[in-house]
Computed example of a mutant assay.
Amino acid sequence: MKTYDALVIGDANVDLVVVGCNALPLPGQEIFVEDMSLHVGGGAAIFGLTLAKLGKAVAFKGVVGQDYYGQYVLDQFRQAGIDTSYVKRSDLGATGLSIAINPERDRSFISYAGTNAELQIDPFIDLDAVPARHVHLTGYRGSRNHTQFMRIVRRLKESGVTVSLDVGWDDTGEWYPGVFDLMEEIDVFFMNETEALHYTGCTVMEESIEQLRERRKNVVVKQGAGGATAIINGTVTHQAGYAVNVVDTTGAGDSFNAGYIDGYLSGLSVEECLAYGNACGALSVQDYGGSTGAVDLPRLTTFIEAHRVIDNGGNAK
């Protein structure tokens, strides 16, 4: 008997969002900005919060410090109904922190990994008795932990659990080709268009998507304002994005992931999953903070219905 719809494993930290910072101060100077606000950050945390707000039962595994920021993250999780039993409170370091500067334009970040650096992908729970029907993973680092990911994912699959993973940006520039072997084991493999281009070695998205289709990979490629494309069992499905006023793009991709997985776990079609993902991403960018714009399922479906495109034949799509 599975207790949760999803167990989320990955990073959790706080984001300090700074709005209206046109220039960094010189030594000895002080500048004033339009606003600063504190939010839960980290791709896995934003995914978990968004999925929980949509109504799924979520548990989270991560590491935070024995400090105010760690308590803030836990409090926000609990308010959203997330089970924090698997979150470790570490005495070794402080909770991670990112300062997001000018999120409404070309964002810049100053980040401290903190206790996120302590997280190991091997769950400190019995892999043969995972208390969830789905596990969402982050933190893939190419050749540095590829073997570990392959082992854990295969064990999870053997236990009857479905698995999704957001591959994330490779800050080493390696773009490890073994990622295609990992794709074979993952039920829903998320990447953005820039990551897809790097991994496939293509220069245009059409070529990258075709290569993924030929490889028969189950991949969902996020394309920002351009929507998203799912390549499932050799079939390519594209859904356009929603035109909204963009305030802060932080966490938009993680919010997309949560919307897509909510549809996936609900047994919806690929088209509907993409619509859920695009809608969650669109709602996310309209407010500061990665999960601030997250809504419950009724409001999500209302948003989708209100933004349906009517074609020339008078049909909604």
Rank of each mutant, 00 (worst) to 15 (best):
I82G: 03
C280P: 04
D311E: 09
E305G: 07
H198D: 08
T147E: 15
A228R: 00
G28Q: 12
V130K: 01
D122A: 15
T237M: 01
G93K: 14
A100P: 07
Q211F: 07
A52L: 03
A44L: 01
G224Q: 06
G42L: 03
H238Y: 05
D15E: 02
A117F: 10
G173N: 02
V87W: 12
M36C: 10
E195W: 00
G178R: 06
K222Y: 02
G263M: 04
V17N: 05
K157V: 00
A306L: 09
V18H: 01
N278M: 08
V58A: 04
V244Y: 06
R141D: 10
N192R: 05
V246L: 08
G55W: 00
R107N: 12
L268T: 14
T292H: 10
S37G: 09
L24V: 15
G314L: 06
Q120N: 14
Y72T: 08
M150L: 15
E34V: 12
A57S: 14
P103R: 03
Y199R: 00
G41A: 03
F124G: 06
W169K: 14
M36H: 07
V33Q: 05
A240I: 07
S85G: 10
G139D: 08
Y140W: 04
E193Y: 11
A282M: 05
G224E: 02
N257T: 06
S208M: 02
T138H: 09
A240Q: 10
T229W: 07
D311P: 06
G259V: 00
A45F: 05
A225E: 15
A45H: 05
D171I: 12
L197M: 11
A59W: 02
G259P: 03
I31H: 14
V246M: 13
L274T: 07
F256A: 00
V295R: 08
M183G: 11
Y140S: 00
A252K: 04
D287F: 10
Y68L: 13
V64S: 04
V285S: 00
L300C: 07
K222G: 03
I152N: 03
L119M: 11
V19I: 12
S90V: 01
D248E: 07
